[in-house]
Nucleic acid binder design. Structure first.
Length: 262
DNA sequence: TTAGATGTTATTAA
DNA sequence: TTTAATAACATCTA
């Protein structure tokens, strides 16, 4: 699930649930989600502290405390939920943060593909974010266009490459390409000036509404609303959608709206 | 039973 | 050097 809009939603959840409130207790129910940090050190570092600032870069969420920084990545199935300490724990609640008097923030994740890190200082934060390209929501048009034109790979692969641009995942990339009317296997470096401009504009539009929705919404008027139906037609022109695997990811596009010009 | 699922990363190959 | 494909990670569902 988690792409940039989802993680932005988790950022808001963290903020409204726990920002400024003392973390009274850290309960690690499955240490399998901890990276480079032990249960003991996580508890000692965070209990008694409070998250002062919640930041997001691409699909990473950072909780600053004034001391160490808690860094979270959600993989494919992670999420953050805010509840009450008395709520029954669900099977995939891996870490519980009891905050203030009556709230509990939970890192819930079925597959445990990513998890939690604890960065000691700014250099540690930088180390973990090293290799991440500019955030897709914050990148300037010129930087976006420059990054694309220097790449020879397929535009779909380039858009989802976190070292080029941080935040876009498989669904968003397909959605943005469909809106910009670009075939996913077009070479990024071969796009025209106009193609790149359209791509940037549609990326911003798509991100804006997805962030508002808190996810990449499976709306009927979006491509995303049809990707699970193998006989689906394009919501714009009615053509039967094509699907194929690009870089071992399922890819959906409309053959009429997104002609293959390569 | 097997394939595939919105994440990243290491490895291997071209 | 760059790119692409594949497996691996852990777990569930169709």
């Amino acid at each position: 699930m988690p792409e940039l809009p989802d993680v932005e939603g988790f950022r808001k959840t963290f903020e409204s649930c726990a920002k400024g409130r003392t973390i009274r207790r850290v309960d690690v129910r499955d240490a399998g989600v901890l990276h480079e940090v032990s249960t003991r050190r996580l508890r000692e570092a965070l209990e008694g502290r409070r998250a002062t600032k919640l930041e997001r870069h691409g699909k990473w969420l950072l909780a600053r405390t004034g001391g160490p920084t808690l860094m979270l990545h959600f993989g494919m199935t992670g999420q953050l939920v805010c509840g009450h300490p008395d709520d029954a724990a669900e099977a995939h609640d891996r870490v519980l943060f009891t905050v203030g008097d009556d709230r509990q923030l939970r890192y819930r994740d079925q597959r445990k593909l990513q998890g939690l890190w604890l960065a000691d200082g700014d250099s540690d934060v930088s180390r973990l974010l090293d290799g991440q390209g500019p955030d897709a929501m914050a990148v300037a048009r010129r930087d976006f266009e420059a990054a694309l034109s220097s790449r020879r790979g397929k535009v779909k692969s380039v858009l989802t490459d976190q070292s080029v641009l941080a935040g876009l995942g498989n669904l968003l990339a397909d959605e943005i390409l469909w809106r910009a009317r670009l075939h996913p296997t077009r070479r990024a470096g071969d796009l025209t000036e106009d193609d790149r401009r359209r791509l940037y504009t549609q990326m911003r539009r798509t991100l804006r509404s997805a962030v508002t929705a808190g996810c990449v919404p499976p709306r009927d008027s979006w491509l995303t609303g049809h990707r699970d139906d193998s006989a689906a037609t394009c919501p714009r022109c009615g053509s039967t959608l094509h699907r194929f695997r690009i870089a071992s990811r399922s890819t959906v596009w409309c053959p009429r709206c997104q002609p293959d010009e390569s």
